[in-house]
Nucleic acid binder design. Sequence first.
DNA 1: CGCAGATAGTTGCAAATGCAACCATGTCGA
DNA 2: TCGACATGGTTGCATTTGCAACTATCTGCG
Lengths: 151, 151
Amino acid sequence: MTDGHPGGFDLDAFLPYLLNQAAEATSRGFAQVYRAEYGMTRTQWRVLANLGRSGAMTASDICRVSHVEKTKVSRAVAALEERGFLARERHGADRRAETLSLRPEGRAAFERLGMLALDYDRALRARLGPEAATLARVLREMIAAGAEPGG
Amino acid sequence: MTDGHPGGFDLDAFLPYLLNQAAEATSRGFAQVYRAEYGMTRTQWRVLANLGRSGAMTASDICRVSHVEKTKVSRAVAALEERGFLARERHGADRRAETLSLRPEGRAAFERLGMLALDYDRALRARLGPEAATLARVLREMIAAGAEPGG
DNA sequence: CGCAGATAGTTGCAAATGCAACCATGTCGA
DNA sequence: TCGACATGGTTGCATTTGCAACTATCTGCG
């Protein structure tokens, strides 16, 4: 499949590369959907999905949970608010933070996209066969563990 | 971990999301390396790695093989050439295309980074245990198949 | 031949990103 | 109570990206 590599490095076996390619390929497909339907960015979709899943939370909660840079979250939140998808409310106990929660429009978008995502995922899993479940489990473990060799 | 979702969509089981998180986490770690050592971009590293693996090839070959946008490749190639890492040569048969090949500096960088990547990958696999091999195989299948449910 | 596409690669421009700097608030210990 | 430092969030700026043109070359067909 590949020719000899002096140091023995084989790009086709390098996990970060494989993960990136697979992630890019699968994400690109679904990106079409939320982009066409709602003109949303990948980050916006991720923020929406997190809020849809976990209910009200702060921006830094989202950062922690989704491992997305805080400026990315900040701007996605601003965009989603602009569209009326979410509301911010000063957090009672800590006035630096604000509690984010989906407004009806945002919830509707989340539910519609959630349905489409489910379809997408089912199709993907159907193609992968029984190993899809293993894949998902291993990925979850990697993410939970920090996914860095040195971490 | 998650509460009930109206449509049954579960973000924690959504493969594109999991793949992205895992890819981001693993790539970020290695990005430190080629960034610190050579000030390279992710795309530049990928182009370098492809050239290092497959020898001389054209930019569009790289696009096809690595599924990277052609403008990204174009700019990465320009940057790598600027640093003296690669040479372009007009393709004999097709004068639109140019054959890219690593120059000694580029090859040296590839070999050094290849070694480091190998270490990185080994550490990652050690953490994952026996399922690392399965993971790699499934990812390769996904990539080969286009990785899109509809494809 | 000569013209209608395809394909290789670059460029312009708007949008998205990363990083550091920046406020505002909160926490903790002397 | 005060000052040092941590944390939530935003903003500025340079870099990177994506997409749509655009040039140049190639291919195929009437």
